[in-house]
Simulated scan of single mutants.
Amino acid sequence: MSERLFEVTDDTFEIRVLEATRPTLVAFVASWCGPCVELRPRLATLASARETTLQVALCDVDLNTATARKYGVRGMPTLALFTEAGLDTTRVGALSAAQLETWLDHQLAH
Rank of each mutant, 00 (worst) to 15 (best):
F28N: 15
V29E: 14
A30M: 05
S31A: 14
S31R: 13
W32V: 07
W32P: 12
W32N: 13
W32Y: 15
C33M: 04
G34N: 07
P35A: 00
P35F: 01
P35D: 02
P35V: 07
C36N: 04
E38L: 09
R40Q: 11
R40G: 01
R40E: 10
P41Q: 06
P41K: 09
R42H: 09
R42S: 08
L43V: 03
A44P: 09
A44G: 13
A44F: 12
A44C: 11
T45H: 03
T45K: 15
L46S: 02
A47P: 12
A47Q: 04
A47Y: 01
S48A: 12
S48Y: 11
S48H: 14
S48K: 14
A49T: 01
A49I: 00
R50Y: 01
T52W: 08
T52P: 08
T52F: 08
L54Q: 09
L54E: 14
L54C: 08
Q55A: 14
V56S: 06
L58R: 13
L58G: 15
C59D: 14
D62Q: 13
D62P: 04
L63V: 00
L63P: 06
L63E: 09
N64Q: 11
N64R: 04
T65K: 12
A66P: 12
A66W: 09
A68R: 14
